[in-house]
Write a protein that binds this DNA or RNA. Structure first.
Lengths: 292, 292
DNA sequence: AAATCTCTGAAAATATATTGACACATTATC
DNA sequence: GATAATGTGTCAATATATTTTCAGAGATTT
């Protein structure tokens, strides 16, 4: 029997054919509906056993539903699951309205959306929260360092963390000077390392030296993880692939900003005070226009 | 190898072991994470094929994760799925899977998505394309400058543009030195200015001086537009509001990366050549690990 | 109550999945 | 630049899953 409706979900197919199902076939159908779709994603043997029926019963029933055999049924269920999970991601409301789909901006936005989504869903919340508390801890110094490309992110991090808390240091990207900083690192200090591919050997050495001195290391890296990971206490992976010769750091930036926002929230009363004083200083120097 | 943590989800296990995975194992890991958990619920043959690796690779990897074999891994994934579906709330969007909706990460991600979407749909494609051609034009010099916060973005832009084309200058954020640069600016040069609130008066002065000399000005600013806009030839507005005391620069970064990507595409043959030479230089200096 | 029909699961036959052994290719190391 | 180490896929063996066949158990009809 061909599929009456090739786009129907298995659930719908079962409803549709329920009347023609035999007793033990219904037993399986119920078992599947009760735990949908997981109860149909194992092997026919296991699935049958869980439903309390024999394997031929299951095989016959899926054929009744219009599938060629159990594997066909299995594949169909899987596809449904896939569609459900990737549903929101596929939603492309980020298109640039007046450009064709193939315009770079649209290709780019799609890749970026994908990356952000991946990055977000791979953050371990608990780890994030603990890292935040560590970053807010002003008992120790906070060091920030980046590589060739990520230097800019380290700089951005520095600027913001400096506004939030005291005792922040940006280690310049010239690795020759790093030992000078390490000299003063003590237990309880925090070192934020940005390292995306191509990973820099110097950063790994730095991490090792810092770890030896009891410094807590927060690593922000790409999805493949820098070798620094072996020394790091907190690791955040950012998806960075875009259709281009280099890697995107938008998700890296997002993770960084999220960390900054969380740290700020953690230290709020103190931070507000700092912001106000900073504002007064700006007013005084008249370097900036008042925002209107 | 025993399971280090028998209650960990497969996703967590992958994260935990990611550093020790080999290249093609990661290929599979990524494929699974991208379509989790569906991409791991078919047979090892199909799963491997979808990820573009061989079956033994998958088998070896799941053993690394601590499973006895592929069937064990499969069963584990299934159990997760079952637990999740039968859980209280079924709604899990793309956002952080294991965090409550009110967690900062989720609030943050929502705001960021909103900003990116706004920014994208407000880009004028034609203007974008023309700006790209301007940025790719090596007849004139390309100057990049930013403000207090956006200095980091200017730096990022500089690093990338320098890889793509010749004749790029990053004007340091110390405004005292800007007149020196202006001295050499001529018609046909390009000046990329980053200015988000609070807008800096010096940048406006700089823009005026540059515009007088016939320099094409590309402005990347926020949704309210910096006063530099009146001097600028190309204006890109980025949505920057997040629930925090400061502004987010993720959409700014995205727009910048899009411009870089487009410029690179515009000049592709030349750029590829530059990248290759850059790679050789890196190989030579051995400052970086080869990506694996 | 006998005959027939339908349903069901046991078991064999067949197809497919999984794993292990090996050889080649690639990458690190000296 | 040679050598060792590691990673990867092909292939074969083994195990497991799937389907088919078939005989017996119930239900239904005559």
């Amino acid at each position: 029997m061909p599929l009456t409706n090739p786009t129907a979900t298995v659930r719908e197919l079962i409803r549709e054919h329920y009347a023609t199902l035999t007793q033990s076939e219904r037993k399986f159908a119920n078992s599947l509906l009760e735990n949908y779709p997981a109860a149909g994603l194992a092997s026919i043997t296991i699935v049958a056993e869980n439903a309390g029926v024999s394997t031929p019963t299951v095989a016959r029933m899926v054929q009744k539903l219009g599938f060629k055999g159990y594997p066909h049924f299995h594949k169909s269920l899987l596809k449904e699951l896939q569609a459900k999970v990737s549903g929101p991601t596929q939603r492309r409301d980020n298109w640039v309205s007046d450009a064709p789909e193939s315009h770079l901006l649209n290709r780019f936005s799609q890749a970026v959306t994908q990356n952000l989504s991946q990055t977000f869903s791979n953050v371990d919340t608990e780890s994030f929260d603990r890292a935040t508390r560590q970053l807010a801890n002003t008992d120790g110094r906070l060091y920030v360092v980046g590589g060739r490309i990520t230097r800019a992110l380290a700089d951005y991090a520095f600027t913001h963390f400096q506004a939030i808390r005291q005792r922040v240091t940006h280690m310049t990207s010239s690795s020759a000077t790093w030992p000078h900083y390490v000299l003063d690192m003590v237990e309880g200090d925090t070192l934020v390392i940005f390292d995306v591919r191509r990973y820099e050997t110097n950063l790994q050495n730095l991490a090792k030296l810092a770890a030896e001195r009891g410094v807590v290391i927060v690593l922000i890296t790409d999805q493949w993880a820098s070798p620094v990971a072996s020394e790091a206490d907190y690791i955040f992976n950012c998806w960075v692939e875009i259709p281009s010769a280099w890697d995107s750091n938008i998700s890296t930036m997002m993770l960084l900003e999220a960390l900054i926002a969380a740290t700020q929230e953690e230290k709020w009363p103190e931070t507000r005070d700092r912001y106000e004083r900073l504002d007064q200083l700006f007013d005084h120097t008249r370097l900036f226009r008042k925002f209107s």
